[in-house]
Nucleic acid binder design. Sequence first.
DNA 1: CACTAAGCGAGACGGTACGTCCCGTCTTTCC
DNA 2: GGAAAGACGGGACGTACCGTCTCGCTTAGTG
Lengths: 204, 204, 204, 204
Amino acid sequence: VKTILQDKSGKAEPRTAAGRPRSEHLDRAILKAAVDLVLGSGFRALSMDAIAVKAGVGRMTIYRRWPNKAAIIMDAFVLRVDPDTLFFPASSFKESIRLQMRTMAKAFRGKDGALIRVLLAEAQFDPELAKALRERWTMPRRKMAVDYFRTGVGQGVLRSDIDLDAMIDLLYAPLYYRLQMGTGPLSDAYVDEIFEHGMKGLEA
Amino acid sequence: VKTILQDKSGKAEPRTAAGRPRSEHLDRAILKAAVDLVLGSGFRALSMDAIAVKAGVGRMTIYRRWPNKAAIIMDAFVLRVDPDTLFFPASSFKESIRLQMRTMAKAFRGKDGALIRVLLAEAQFDPELAKALRERWTMPRRKMAVDYFRTGVGQGVLRSDIDLDAMIDLLYAPLYYRLQMGTGPLSDAYVDEIFEHGMKGLEA
Amino acid sequence: VKTILQDKSGKAEPRTAAGRPRSEHLDRAILKAAVDLVLGSGFRALSMDAIAVKAGVGRMTIYRRWPNKAAIIMDAFVLRVDPDTLFFPASSFKESIRLQMRTMAKAFRGKDGALIRVLLAEAQFDPELAKALRERWTMPRRKMAVDYFRTGVGQGVLRSDIDLDAMIDLLYAPLYYRLQMGTGPLSDAYVDEIFEHGMKGLEA
Amino acid sequence: VKTILQDKSGKAEPRTAAGRPRSEHLDRAILKAAVDLVLGSGFRALSMDAIAVKAGVGRMTIYRRWPNKAAIIMDAFVLRVDPDTLFFPASSFKESIRLQMRTMAKAFRGKDGALIRVLLAEAQFDPELAKALRERWTMPRRKMAVDYFRTGVGQGVLRSDIDLDAMIDLLYAPLYYRLQMGTGPLSDAYVDEIFEHGMKGLEA
DNA sequence: CACTAAGCGAGACGGTACGTCCCGTCTTTCC
DNA sequence: GGAAAGACGGGACGTACCGTCTCGCTTAGTG
């Protein structure tokens, strides 16, 4: 999935081969229209045409920017969450993890949760989207977590004989599970339960 | 999702108004065709028409039995995994949990994994399917796990102050996570890592 | 241009490969809708979609029957004019030709004229349509005329040293010319003028 | 149809608002590209974009000069045939008509024929083009013919009781007919046949 | 044993969305 | 300030499936 917005992390202005740059304003209008429609009526009821009409835009203008609906939602999602900082300082190393888990759970309870559910689901059918989701959402966050957890190991707070990936999965996978399965609320109480007992196995 | 096959758990033979039973043979042909197509080309490439052609069946014959593609895969999936026993006896209570996790991981690595990925994804868009998946796959298994874990609590092997649902999530959510995210292999080594350290927080 | 209706000259009922026959009723609804639209707004303003909507029909239903708009008009046109008899008996051999020319001019002044203008024009761009127009309209009529003129030669009314095709062109081409060029009215007076002086060169 | 080139018969140089003349060179490049494309691939395959690319020109440059494709072909056509003289002197008044008809048939057999077929067809759908075609091609030629024929009447070679327009139609309509219908070759032999027998009715 | 009602294959049907193509206008940048 | 380049809103195209329907054929159980 190659889109304009993802390239913005680089320096170059998004330009067409020889002509003028694509309108930033239209990008936003389309993303907003798409997100509104998804949150309003669900991804299945979302059509390129509906996005185009709602954004006041020709269909080709959308196709020029994104290959399919999922890529639009992908960009919209990344745009929303990018500025997030991950691990805030807290009273202790451990507490800052709990805080981060709570922040994530809160996001999952809101619009971000709805979007990520759509993206995760769609990614099962679309390898390109799966790759994009991995590269632009999952892996960056995992990397930050791994780095943070590694400092915990260095500080002697976390055990050194556990695979860092497994550590992360142990704490965070339950949040994704509840997000998708709906077997129970993603409440702070739940987060705490997972955190408390999950950490037991990770502490030095 | 109301299908023929799921009713088979009941007593009544599925019959048409006039009393003639629907052909069991066709059910199987359709399910097989659908599963073959999903595993071969993915769910997105799957159309009712393709199933009908591959099964050598009229489209109406399918619609008479299932409301949509996902329901077919749902039935096929349940049919595959139904006979599974969950918690085998092992050298110890704990070990039988590890065994069960390994069995599940193994299934996730194979065709069952492919099917459940499809079902989980599709369920995000289809509340009916979500309900069916919960009722026919998720909850029965969770119930068995809860029951088993409760005996563990009774035996003093597991802590009594933890929510059983959270316990289950802690151990099993990571398997679902890797199944969908593909952040790493669902190997026995991974299962063991999750099991060992997850259990730390659960043991009495 | 291979259409259903043109095959009706044969005996076989128009059927699909293995299934049921296509609805005759829909054919008529589509043709009527198409003709109404052409006569109302012109051929350029005619879209497959407009025909479908006006006929209360899905677009595929049209594409299943005709390859393009022109073929529809072609069929509609042939259906209108088919029952026409060409050379009515009159007070004399010559007079029956004049009568026929007047009948044709009259048709050209009405809806048939509008349709044939469209078909002639479109045929310049579409070799298939050109072929169809030649085979289903032009040539059958020319053949009848040739046959009739030949009896005139036999009766000693028409000269025997003139190419029959040239004879026909001499009398009828002016009607087509005015139809398309609009350099003057296709009145009976005009027809008579062409007839009187054109015949001078043809009479024995 | 208001175009630059047609105005050139007038005095004023075509200038832009601010006083700089539009490039004559571009006009020719566009006309050439358009004609080449029409003769090469047919009018239907002709798009403004294709012309622009082939002429190495921006699309706006074309729209600044012509309102649509047909107007371009119209101008290109008129440019080709303008210098033609109509009625050459010959051994006799009659013979010079035959000569003129042969010249016209020859032109119809070549590129001019292809262009006029396109223009005639397109004019059926586009009243503006029809008007332009009438004013810039049909009527000027008819006027010259009428004038010439009138001298024939004055000389006592042609009958005085026939409408001059009908006379012209009688002789020339068949050429247009064959051009469009393709019912036979536009050979000199054909022209002679039409001429010989058509004239019978016109001679004094 | 013939009759009849259903299940069934086949596929036509109205409809929705797709992704592409072209139109005619507009905007930007360069010359 | 004209011109190339091409983005843009719009609209038609032809295709692919959807879920429903109707047609004859087959078949099984009843009268």
